[in-house]
Design a protein around this nucleic acid. Structure first.
Lengths: 240, 240
DNA sequence: GCAAAAGTGTTCGCGCTACACCCATGT
DNA sequence: ACATGGGTGTAGCGCGAACACTTTTGC
């Protein structure tokens, strides 16, 4: 911060959201079909420019999320992912975008909000297959990678679940996001043993066949001790 | 990205650097004394605004790092940390800053570069004690927390070491950054056993007493399997 | 009673911990 | 020879993997 103020170039700042959920036994992401150029008609992450020069960037993320999904900041996980600022990422002008990772449960899907764009859930595998607007393919990869990693050492998985959920539902989240099978017995022991992860409600599910399952709520812990490790990590991080 | 272009507020974009190293048996950070208002005379992270509307943000980080330390992008670790954009963080005007974490070895200290500000190393504990410019206290906390966490599951520790180093030097990095003692025998076994972490050079140190130590170079791996875990994690992450 | 799904007990083996010991060099 | 620091061997134990078994419901 040594330059004088009149030498500072102005830049447009956007906020984009990678909203993940588990639906229909698949990891899915919320995408919108762009109504304007560039990339008109292509799928893109929901997002937008700062509403005013005084809007907080975290606040802008919360606002966009509410506009696209109708969800408030409670009952969902929202964290900053990364900022993308390659000079040519938007052909119109210089734009840098601060991206956020959001994780929401499946059930509440009143996403057809007041926005003109039509938002819809797309399986991540399918989204990464087809072409996307801007560098959003890269952003989705980073978001999924972050979510996969955080399942190991945080309680992020509960953000994919409704307020009350069973151990088996939680295990399905891990299996679907990681793409690998887990031992039901060992998983059950680990998550019920991890301090502050799950709080039993005492209630049971109404089932159509089979033994009713215990219902749990998320506990106060946000970090897992010990961690819930995958058999093998597949990430490779490119830095700078 | 649904708004029209003429509604987009312009924002000044800065890049700040949290450059960490281990010096004199302490974790230290590179700080500059501010020469202008606001916070004139206070210590701050090195950084500055984008040099032009077309400069890449990662490129700006590399440029600033070279200006402040004389170090090139090779032989150091540089990764994006987080973007800070609270509306009031700079009293002059709206500024958001994209922050980077850099890790450099101790020896090369030709930091008195061409910049007018005087950069110097400050122990992290001391830096977090005194008042710092802007929200840089928070940024330093985040940077240190990130570095501590990454030592566990990546080969980041080698970035604190010179090109050739001994196992004991590497262990000192872990002990100083984590602030806890490690068992020399078990540490030695783990790091020499981790595939791609260390490459033996065949050379030995010249010592003034005691058995000469084997010298190693960093290996090609960037992720550790299995991880090198601390006894207890102390982080608590605040999200959004 | 049978099917379906949830929850439990127990062994096996790997990996980490802890600690004692040996090796190579300078003085 | 001895001090100094680097490297090594090994027993014990705790945790996770694997697998078979019991419990509780609907039909």
């Amino acid at each position: 911060m040594t330059e004088e103020e009149w030498t500072i170039p102005d830049v447009a700042v956007a906020v984009d959201l990678a909203v993940l959920t588990v639906r229909a036994e698949q990891l899915q992401i919320l995408l919108v079909e762009r109504g304007i150029e560039p990339f008109r008609g292509a799928l893109a992450l929901p997002g937008g420019f700062l509403a005013s020069a005084r809007e907080d960037i975290d606040g802008a993320a919360v606002r966009e999320l509410a506009e696209e999904t109708g969800l408030a900041a409670e009952d969902l996980h929202l964290e900053q992912l990364r900022t993308y600022g390659t000079p040519d990422r938007d052909p119109r002008r210089r734009v840098i975008t601060v991206c956020y990772l959001a994780v929401v449960p499946n059930l509440p899907v009143p996403r057809a909000g007041g926005d003109a764009d039509v938002a819809r859930w797309v399986p991540v595998a399918e989204a990464l297959d087809g072409p996307l607007a801007f560098d959003h393919s890269r952003i989705i990869s980073d978001a999924v990678e972050r979510a996969r990693g955080k399942l190991e050492y945080t309680t992020l998985a509960t953000a994919f679940c409704p307020a009350e959920f069973t151990v088996t539902e939680l295990r399905r989240v891990y299996e679907i996001v990681w793409g690998e099978q887990l031992e039901p017995r060992n998983f059950h022991r680990k998550v019920t043993g991890a301090d502050g992860f799950l709080v039993p409600t005492g209630e049971k599910t109404l089932r159509q066949g089979g033994r009713p399952a215990e219902l749990y709520r998320r506990g106060p812990a946000s970090l897992l001790h010990p961690a819930l490790l995958r058999s093998r990590a597949s990430s490779l991080e490119v830095t700078a």
